[in-house]
Computed example of a mutant assay.
Amino acid sequence: MLSKHPWIISAVLAGILVAWLASGSINGNAGDEQGKKEESIAPAPIKVRVQTMHAQPVDQNISLYGRTEPNREVTLKSEVDGRVVEILKRRGEPVETGEALLKIALNDRPQLLQHARAELAQRQLEYEGASSLNTKGFQGKAEVARKKALLKESQARVAALQREISNTVISAPFAGIMLERNVEVGDYLSVGASVATIVDLDPLVVRGDVTQQDIRHLHVGQQAIMTLASGEKHVGKIRYLSSVADEETNTFRVEVALANSDGHLLGGLSVNLQIPLKQIQAIKITPALMALNEAGVIGIKWVKDGKVQFTPIDVVRSDSDGTWIRGLEEEAQVITVGQAFVREGDTVETSSDDTGDS
């Protein structure tokens, strides 16, 4: 019967097709609306923990390693030949300026001096007699000049022997410590033989080297703080700055003088030298708070108005328990947990760190 009425079949198929197309359009519109709703929902902000830190006035300084050394050091040498007959000072003992350290045998020097003095007296008389005769016209000028030359020769001989006798006693040229003594009683010394080493430890000098960037901040008379390995601190002043850099290291020598009247500070110690420059505002952090940005720069991530900020590290001073940096605001919410998961500009949700304010 349907085969006799094909139009009925066509109408049914057309109705089914229209219904199928209509259902697809409806489902498509519903999917678009769902996608738009999903796009309109913003991602949830990342949660981080922050610690409110406050800037404090900090002394910006130059830090360098130095070594203590004597103010002066001299090696005494014998100026005469002879045998050592007496030792007056031992190694390590303090000495005063002009104090005798040891004695060398006089031998026949006193007798030679007596003879030279007698000869000097004779030539003095001869010169005076020749001068008197010359004024009366009985003595020529040439003879007077010869007598005068002989007189000067005798005077020089007496002075030389007096100096030799004086040099048989070797004395300290300045107050200090006898660091070394190279001779014993009975040793024979020739001219130029090393006898002893004297050091002056007051003031004590700390020698260090500063970079080309730091030398321009320093001047003679500037205060410096020396810290020993034990933690003991002493204050001194810069007494010398090199005007020419070392050819190998391109650094400049600096010397700091420290009062050491009681001699308790020793030479040859390795020390830390801090030279204060000026006071600036800085925040103290630990290495655990440091993070890298996308460019690989080390810095600190902190939050302002809900947005992550990034400040590169600008070190003012390093202590044993942290590092002082500048560049942040006087009060900053520094990210303590989660800094590795956020970038500069991200919106974050903060919670206070239990460690408290800094």
Rank of each mutant, 00 (worst) to 15 (best):
Y188L: 07
Y188K: 13
Y188A: 12
S190D: 12
S190E: 08
V191F: 15
V191N: 02
G192H: 13
S194G: 08
S194E: 12
S194H: 09
S194I: 00
V195S: 08
I198M: 04
I198Y: 02
D200I: 03
D200K: 07
L201T: 00
D202L: 05
P203C: 15
L204M: 11
V206N: 13
V206M: 08
R207H: 07
D209W: 13
Q212C: 02
I215S: 03
R216N: 09
H217D: 06
H217W: 06
L218M: 01
L218G: 04
V220C: 03
V220L: 01
G221Q: 14
G221C: 02
Q222N: 15
Q222F: 09
A224G: 03
M226I: 00
T227Q: 12
L228S: 11
L228P: 04
A229K: 09
S230K: 05
G231Y: 04
G231D: 05
G231S: 15
E232K: 13
E232F: 03
K233L: 06
K233P: 06
H234L: 15
V235Y: 09
V235W: 05
G236F: 02
K237Q: 14
K237A: 14
I238R: 09
I238V: 02
I238D: 11
L241Q: 15
S242F: 02
V244Q: 11
V244D: 12
A245S: 09
A245H: 08
D246R: 10
E247Q: 15
E247H: 14
T249F: 02
N250C: 03
N250R: 13
N250L: 05
T251A: 01
F252C: 00
R253C: 00
R253W: 13
R253P: 06
V256P: 00
N260I: 00
N260G: 03
D262A: 11
G263E: 09
H264T: 08
L266A: 10
G267N: 13
G267H: 13
G267S: 14
